Amino acid sequence: MVTEKDFVFTTTTHAVEKGNFQCSAPSNIALVKYWGKKDKQIPANPSISFTLNHCKTITKLSFTKKNSSITIGSTKEKFSFELLFEGKPKEDFKPKIQKFFERIEAYCPYLTDYHFIIATENTFPHSSGIASSASGMAALAMNIMSLEKALNPAMTEDFFFQKASFLARLGSGSACRSVKGNVVVWGKHAEIKASSDLFGVEFPSELHDNFKNYQDTILLVDKGEKQVSSTVGHDLMHHHPFAEQRFAQAHRNLSAIKNVLENGDLAEFIKIVESEALTLHAMMMTSLPYFILMKPNTLEIINKIWNYRNETNIPVCFTLDAGANVHILYPENVRDIVLQFIKDELVGYCQNGNYICDAVGNGGQLIIDN
């Protein structure tokens, strides 16, 4: 069994003075949700997600070996880095990167040897209401692992992705599901081979043809900042009256959706995915303090989807993240007709008529290795 100790870097076989890498990593949408976590970003229950294809973060990591006699910047700091977002300095992002480096230093001690320039951008608008923490932390983790592989070229590909997922989790829990694979499981589950609380693993079974290139159209109902951060929401599960029942339900639903993804049962898929979305928000509404992240237009869209599915028998369904936006999921073979439904019936409920068309992708990519 893989433990945290297995990810502690101990061997430098090659000297690396400077260079740069560029990696991309996508966002993901959970089908069975995780809500609630323990210390060190450990999930209270397992989850499974579709990796997206187009909604991604592209991050370039440039690095130069520090000279111990030279101070980089105005103060001598343990971690030395600059952060650029879409080509401009982004000071309000820096505390999160600082905290991430502090969390992973024990596993990547070489981070203190370099000055970094982190240049990042999203393929989707930053204010679009799509959470970029998963894609952003996954892309950064893959860049860091590219540096580690340069320091120790004997590293295997499997270890590279496993540790990248492990590191990404320490930046943002769900980021571990954005590193590799089209369907990813995070969290220990009895029926998922090699599943772990420490990192995400690719779905171990053959995915049924019904779910290949599955579509996700994201309706941007509210592009504003969330009223309650995900971190606060997760913490409220510690004393939640329904927490244990919810964690048990997630295990059952993961077992059920595993079978569905293997056998292609779209009706059962819809039932599980929509129930999970509503349960996630039910946990928010029944915590203390309680909060509601759905908006009136979120409910209007859900009702429109239900009516449309009842009238046409087209297997379209919704899921939600911890926010107001609606992810509409459907097979590729009904793409044209569902997109017409979205344009005719749902766009009016989106902020400024905005929506994003995406589909299931395969995870992160190394773009530049220099």
Rank of each mutant, 00 (worst) to 15 (best):
H239M: 05
N210Q: 12
L236Q: 08
E244G: 00
H239E: 15
D235G: 07
P241R: 02
D222A: 04
D197E: 15
S195A: 14
G233S: 05
I218Q: 02
S229A: 09
D235F: 03
L220Q: 13
L198A: 07
P204A: 10
G224R: 14
Y214S: 00
T217I: 12
N213R: 10
D216K: 01
F211I: 04
Y214N: 00
T231E: 14
S230E: 03
P204N: 07
L207N: 02
S230F: 07
H208Y: 13
H234M: 11
H240E: 03
S205H: 15
Q215V: 03
K223Y: 05
S195N: 12
A194L: 14
Y214G: 00
N210L: 01
Q227K: 13
M237C: 09
S196F: 09
L219K: 06
L236F: 11
L236K: 09
E244Y: 05
L236D: 00
S195L: 10
P241D: 01
F199M: 10
P204D: 03
D235Y: 00
K223F: 07
E225A: 13
V232K: 11
D209I: 13
E202M: 08
S230K: 07
E244P: 00
V232E: 14
S196H: 10
V201P: 07
Q245I: 03
H234Y: 01
G200S: 11
L219Y: 07
E206A: 12
L207Y: 06
D197K: 12
A194M: 13
V221I: 15
K212R: 15
H239I: 04
V221P: 08
A243F: 06
M237F: 02
G233H: 05
V201M: 13
H234C: 08
L220A: 15
Q245R: 07
L236S: 10
E206M: 08
V201I: 15
E202R: 01
H239L: 07
H240Y: 06
P241F: 04
H240K: 03
L220W: 06
H234G: 05
P204S: 07
L220D: 03
Y214K: 00
A243C: 06
Q215E: 14
S230V: 11
H234A: 05
I218H: 02
H234R: 02
D222Y: 09
K212D: 10
P241V: 02
G224C: 10
D235E: 12
K212H: 14
